[in-house]
Design a protein around this nucleic acid. Sequence first.
DNA 1: GATGAATGAGTTTTCATTCAT
DNA 2: AATGAATGAAAACTCATTCAT
Lengths: 204, 204, 204, 204
Amino acid sequence: MKESARKTRGNREKIIQAAAKLIIEKGVANTSLADIADEVGISKGTLYYYYATKGDLIFDISVRHMEHITNTIVAWISGHGRDRQPELVLQMVIETVLKSETRGYIHFYLIQEALSGNHESLKIRFTEEYDRWLDLIEQGLRLILPTDTDFQTISRVLLSTIDGLLMQNLLGQGPLPLREISRFFADYQGELTRPISSYTQSQN
Amino acid sequence: MKESARKTRGNREKIIQAAAKLIIEKGVANTSLADIADEVGISKGTLYYYYATKGDLIFDISVRHMEHITNTIVAWISGHGRDRQPELVLQMVIETVLKSETRGYIHFYLIQEALSGNHESLKIRFTEEYDRWLDLIEQGLRLILPTDTDFQTISRVLLSTIDGLLMQNLLGQGPLPLREISRFFADYQGELTRPISSYTQSQN
Amino acid sequence: MKESARKTRGNREKIIQAAAKLIIEKGVANTSLADIADEVGISKGTLYYYYATKGDLIFDISVRHMEHITNTIVAWISGHGRDRQPELVLQMVIETVLKSETRGYIHFYLIQEALSGNHESLKIRFTEEYDRWLDLIEQGLRLILPTDTDFQTISRVLLSTIDGLLMQNLLGQGPLPLREISRFFADYQGELTRPISSYTQSQN
Amino acid sequence: MKESARKTRGNREKIIQAAAKLIIEKGVANTSLADIADEVGISKGTLYYYYATKGDLIFDISVRHMEHITNTIVAWISGHGRDRQPELVLQMVIETVLKSETRGYIHFYLIQEALSGNHESLKIRFTEEYDRWLDLIEQGLRLILPTDTDFQTISRVLLSTIDGLLMQNLLGQGPLPLREISRFFADYQGELTRPISSYTQSQN
DNA sequence: GATGAATGAGTTTTCATTCAT
DNA sequence: AATGAATGAAAACTCATTCAT
């Protein structure tokens, strides 16, 4: 019992790792279940023993990926937030996401899958998680930026910037000026209280 | 000859329009050549008369899409740049990209295709175009932001933010605070000359 | 144009014939699209050019089969009804259905498919057609049986009997006493007007 | 030993019940061994401890089903035959088969399986049992119909009618006129001795 | 220029069956 | 007795691409 349970977990892990590797290399659409099974060294049938559907597998990978991101952000906040210069903290964050080319790429491919397939639940999951990330980033920024900052907005801009940079990075855009970008956010001095001039309603 | 040349061009146009429409709705991967042919009202065989390959068609669509973006940016700079408040100009830019949900989506899907398939030349083309856009945005910002701004960095952040917001928009993230984001960029006061503190090298 | 249209129709016909043949031999479930394609001498891909779905093909075969039965019944009524002994007419009808082992079997297999798969529309179609057959049989029997017969009931019994005999025939039940069965129906003298004794309500 | 033998029998019973339930709902083809194992609450592996093959299981279910039918007919004859009006007895018989929609359906699905798969022995078994049923029905009818009836023929017609009605019932054919059909058989007055007119040989 | 027909390689998925523990 | 894990063969279906007319 214990034996097989361990085996199961081990194999699930192997499958996830193999699938993630292939997805990072080729994207979800170009990674077939046959490819994954080959990579793990099992048969397609066995793969289906662990995941009833390709979608299920992708969902599992995505959830783990999101958890990883969340954990990483949390770790930064609690561990490194206080004692460093804002700029350096930000630089670390941004670089961590982009530098690990492997980990970064999968983020894009998974979102792409959430958007292209019939994966409504995956889409929802990502949306929820983005909200969580925004909250966490806001918390983190409160530790290193002046209190009169518009934290909500800067959090959104920071998160969006990271996503955008990731995309450009994947495209092979040359070296990104990460240090300058970090400084950009660290130096932000926008006053929260200034009245907003009206152009149109801010709607989506 | 002239006759048929005109016809050819007309059909190419129809194909592109139809394909773009379908891609916006379903993404590249879920749009088959049969779908496109149907939408145009021609046969698949005819489609192949105009484009030797699905990749060729996507490439053509992409190029036109990039040109459209480039033109739009240029128009903003030359036309609207001077006479308005920075904040309003930025808000307009951002909203224009995101609001036209239709047009925006195709950008993501085309990049996705450039990254997922064997479309090295498309990837390169996108990379080059991104550089151009960065330049243009920088030019535009020089007209509305204080001269001591780090234009290069803020341009990159702005462009990345737009890409990131687009992605989140596609995911169905609720209403984005576009007005606040515009103000965020308009209010940026970071000094260009401040020395950069060293953490690590800024590389990709 | 004419050329290809003819080709299309010809191939559709070939496919239907081949599929019918295989279904008669092995039933629908045991007849794969690969089998059918092989039998016709085309590729699976080509098969899908003609029928978008296995269900579509089965539906088409079913409709043709039903039409064939309907036509057969109509032919009996109009052609042979008047001038023969009731018994002989009935015998002919019953034998025609069962004798042509080929044709008969497919009826069972198609109904089986209608019941086992997700073929709601096929089921409906069969139900409608059964109603039509009941009407037609009733018309036919009016020509050969005494006017005070309960035509509706005897039609239903006759049709059900044929279905039941078909099933038993398929099972390999030895020679069926078709001549006696025909006489059974021909000799039926039940009076329509006798009051029905009440046991319970006659509901389904 | 006794202990385990009892357990074995108990589990076999559970498996049969579960399988029967699923077959009635979905037919044999749509009932997988995994479904059955789930329904019983055992593993697929265990299922194979009790039945070496899916075919074996189906065979066992079929045999029990046939026994059930046989017992039912016998019970009618011995118990209810004598003291009622023929028509009511017949109505009861017919309704019993069709009304219990649950039980009725399995008959069709099992025959379907006997015919579609490679179940020669099952086919034979059904054929034999049909002969037995014909005999029994004949015995029963002798108790309630006039002695000059052609019992063999009417038995066959009655059995076939029931099979046919069952099929139409499954198709969803509206309410069947069961009372009228019962009366049809009860009122039959065909003389056994009338010479058969010759049309062709009565063969299958 | 245009088209209908044909194809083949690939994809996801199902499932009865086997077997070591 | 029981089970979880593994498998392989087959199934339906998709689609970019080719080609004769």
